[in-house]
């Protein structure tokens, strides 16, 4: 479905944050992109959404190169939630979610009846109808994240991309948000791509992982394959043990302190 071929990219001329990346993402994948800070995870997502043009190589979706897509066309294929979304103005949740319908609106950009139906459906799905009229800045971190997801869902795209969606969330809210994404992936056949710092959450929820290092894909595959103590130890420059979660049978990672190593 998504075919990234030999892509190099950066924010400035002659800058290479991504270095010759090859990656194939299948339909209905739940792909977690992991790696250290500055490894190029967010840059990869931006190239995918055509926010940054690659200096070489191609990104194709269904065999069409994304650089030839108009901004509007790409907004109907991929919805993207960046790390920081400015909500400077005091919009309420409903108004904010309605922005997701923008690519479908007429020339005056007024929401139609159908737009309201889609937004209502999305809000019911995420169980956020009760705070439709609440101002975004009065919501808790978890609630706000749900509203942001709702906006992305209102775009009705096949692929949804999240950058550090679960950052700043407590473990309960994080699990909640990831469960929603899993449901979208399994029940509504959405292709989900997200960057994550919590390796254990990545292991539990993603069916594919891409471990990035210094602008390259270091390893790619199922969590069992990618999350091994050698690779994780080397990339994150630390010592870890990898065990199997007795309930889900997925790998989980335990950091090991220096004292344990001495013993």
């Amino acid at each position: 479905m998504i075919n990234i071929k030999n892509v190099s990219a950066g924010y400035f001329k002659n800058e290479q944050i991504l270095k010759n990346i090859f990656l194939n993402i299948e339909r209905k994948d739940f792909l977690g992109i992991i790696g250290k800070n500055g490894a190029g995870k967010s840059t990869l997502l931006k190239v995918l959404c055509n926010l940054i043009k690659p200096s070489c190589g191609t990104v194709c979706i269904n065999n069409n190169n994304v650089i030839f897509f108009s901004q509007k066309k790409i907004a109907k294929i991929i919805s993207f939630l960046p790390q920081d979304v400015d909500v400077m103005l005091p919009f309420n949740a409903l108004e904010f979610i309605m922005f997701g319908r923008y690519p479908y609106m007429n020339i005056f950009k007024m929401p139609s009846r159908n737009d309201y139906i889609v937004v209502k459906k999305v809000m019911d799905f995420l169980d956020i109808t009760s705070f439709a009229k609440k101002k975004i800045d009065s919501l808790s971190g978890g609630e706000k994240q749900k509203v942001l997801i709702a906006q992305a869902l209102a775009q009705e795209t096949e692929i949804i991309v999240f950058d550090e969606l679960t950052l700043h969330l407590d473990i309960g809210s994080q699990n909640n948000v990831l469960r929603i994404l899993k449901k979208l992936n399994e029940r509504y056949n959405k292709t989900i791509i997200l960057t994550l710092h919590d390796l254990n959450a990545a292991s539990e929820f993603c069916n594919k992982l891409a471990l990035m290092d210094n602008g390259k894909i270091y390893s790619y595959g199922t969590p069992d394959k990618v999350l091994n103590y050698r690779d994780i130890g080397q990339i994150y420059n630390t010592i870890v043990a990898v065990k199997t979660n007795p309930i889900s049978n997925k790998p989980y990672i335990i950091p090991i302190s220096d004292e344990c190593i001495k013993v």
Binding site: I74, L81, D86, L89, Y102, F108, K109
Partner: peptide, 20 residues
């Protein structure tokens, strides 16, 4: 242009990915 202004107040990145 009210709705375009609405969307642009979300920041360049977000506005672009919504199709503006």
């Amino acid at each position: 242009s009210g709705n375009i202004i609405n969307v642009m107040s979300l920041g360049i990145e977000k506005a672009k990915t919504i199709g503006v």
